[in-house]
Amino acid sequence: MTTAQRRRCSALLLSTDTVADVVEILQAHDFYEPAHALIYDAVLRVYGAGESPDPVRVPRCSTPPARRPRPEAWTISAH
């Protein structure tokens, strides 16, 4: 079941058409893994804002604000 859910989440991140197809059918509580439900909620938020869900936008949306790194804490490493 988890492999199928991972594939479903991946499809949602790759195609806006896929989101449009499942938005009326699939709900976050349909996912067994809490992480997959969190990803799905984030996909819906991005999609609902009129943007295309993708692997860049969704992780930003799915990370709780208290856990997001602050820009001043980011570092650039040459390693």
Rank of each mutant, 00 (worst) to 15 (best):
M1C: 14
T2K: 12
T3P: 04
T3F: 05
R8P: 08
C9H: 10
A11G: 11
L12D: 10
L12V: 06
L13S: 10
D17R: 06
T18I: 14
T18W: 13
T18L: 13
T18P: 00
T18D: 07
V23D: 09
E24L: 09
E24C: 11
I25H: 12
H29F: 10
D30C: 08
F31N: 01
E33L: 09
P34R: 01
P34Y: 04
A35L: 06
H36R: 08
A37M: 08
A37L: 04
A37Y: 06
L38Y: 04
L38I: 05
I39R: 06
I39H: 04
I39E: 06
Y40N: 02
A42E: 08
A42N: 07
R45E: 09
R45I: 01
V46M: 01
Y47D: 03
G50I: 05
E51G: 01
S52E: 14
S52P: 09
S52I: 12
D54C: 13
P55W: 05
V58I: 00
P59M: 05
R60V: 01
C61A: 12
S62L: 04
P64A: 08
P65E: 03
R67D: 15
R67F: 13
R67W: 13
R68Q: 15
P69W: 15
R70A: 15
A73F: 09
W74M: 14
T75W: 02
T75D: 06
S77R: 00
S77F: 05
H79R: 15
